[in-house]
């Protein structure tokens, strides 16, 4: 009994931080651009497989490959903004359909170039073995990822509260039209937000790559976590996302360790749909990013 409680407790933290890291970029995009980036899942794929491509196929060093793949992710976000989001800004149904289509195109491209049998493996392990907290033992890499996710969130909060760019973004997230009046350069801000938002999923992806079997279709489940968390938290609000991450983390840990691991995602999806129906503004009632 105590074991289960300890497991649930520690995994609430692990899962929660992990989901927070996964959903961070998504929340920023939803908060600043006020659109729903259904192509977000492609970022995970580009980060992982981009690194692999630069490392194995092009022949760069591992660290250089990681840097290059981040550049690729940023380029992808930039292009998505310029080509898809800007074009379909006013037609949300087209926008969402086009974004999913882009996601599927990337997914299939990756599947064509590096199908599962290639055995893509990225040696990004920071902590080998596992760490024991009381009766529970946690893979060290997961713990490291959680800590880095939290550090990332703190970094982004500092950006949003301390820097000028961050303040402008918060202003945009509060009132798009008012900030238009005071002469904010939207395009630039949106591009910056898109690129800023593309880094956390890329980092998280690289960190969990050694422990979660990489396959070309890993984008969807990760993207589902991002949707679930940011919807529960209130679309595009970081405070809500932080709360929601740990709530979903708790649901997953509790259901996974005391009921049936196969029910984890189902349970959280049901919770989120119920929240969407009865309280669409989510946990945070605020309409702003922070």
């Amino acid at each position: 009994m105590l074991d289960v409680a300890a497991l649930i407790f520690s995994y609430t933290f692990i899962f929660g931080s992990l989901y927070l890291g996964i959903a961070l970029g998504f929340t920023i995009i939803t908060g600043v651009l006020r659109i729903f980036h259904l192509g977000y899942g492609a970022i995970f794929l580009i980060a992982a497989y981009g690194t692999w491509m630069f490392w194995k196929d092009v022949g760069f060093g591992f660290i250089e490959s990681i840097v290059l793949s981040f550049a690729l992710v940023a380029l992808f976000s930039f292009l998505i903004y310029q080509v898809v989001i800007k074009k379909f800004w006013e037609m949300e149904d087209y926008l969402l359909a086009a974004l999913i289509a882009v996601f599927i195109i990337i997914e299939e491209l990756v599947n064509y170039a590096y199908p599962e049998i290639v055995g893509v493996y990225l040696p990004t392990t920071i902590i080998e073995g596992s760490i024991s907290i009381g009766p529970a033992s946690i893979p060290g890499q997961l713990a490291a990822t959680s800590v880095i996710a939290i550090l990332m969130v703190i970094c982004y909060l500092l950006i949003f509260t301390k820097t000028k760019t961050g303040l402008i973004m918060r202003a945009i997230s509060q009132d798009i039209f008012a900030s238009q009046l005071v002469g904010v350069n939207f395009d630039r801000m949106f591009i910056v937000a898109m690129i800023l938002a593309s880094l956390p999923p890329a980092i998280i992806m690289l960190l969990i790559a050694p422990i979660w079997a990489l396959n070309p279709f890993i984008g969807w489940p990760l993207f589902t976590y991002a949707i679930v968390v940011s919807v529960l938290g209130g679309l595009g609000n970081l405070r809500g996302t932080i709360m929601a991450s740990y709530i979903i983390g708790f649901i997953h840990a509790a259901v996974g360790f005391s009921l049936d691991p196969r029910l984890m995602l189902l349970a959280s999806l049901v919770v989120v749909v119920a929240v969407l129906v009865f309280r669409p503004e989510g946990l945070a009632r605020a309409e702003t990013i922070w």
């Binding site: 729903f36 969402l96 589902t224 949707i227 679930v228 919807v231 995602l265 189902l266 999806l269 049901v270 989120v272 749909v273 969407l276 129906v277």
Partner: peptide, 10 residues
């Protein structure tokens, strides 16, 4: 959109 998008996943 989101609710209907999540239904198939459920």
């Amino acid at each position: 959109v989101l609710i209907t998008l999540l239904l198939p996943f459920i």
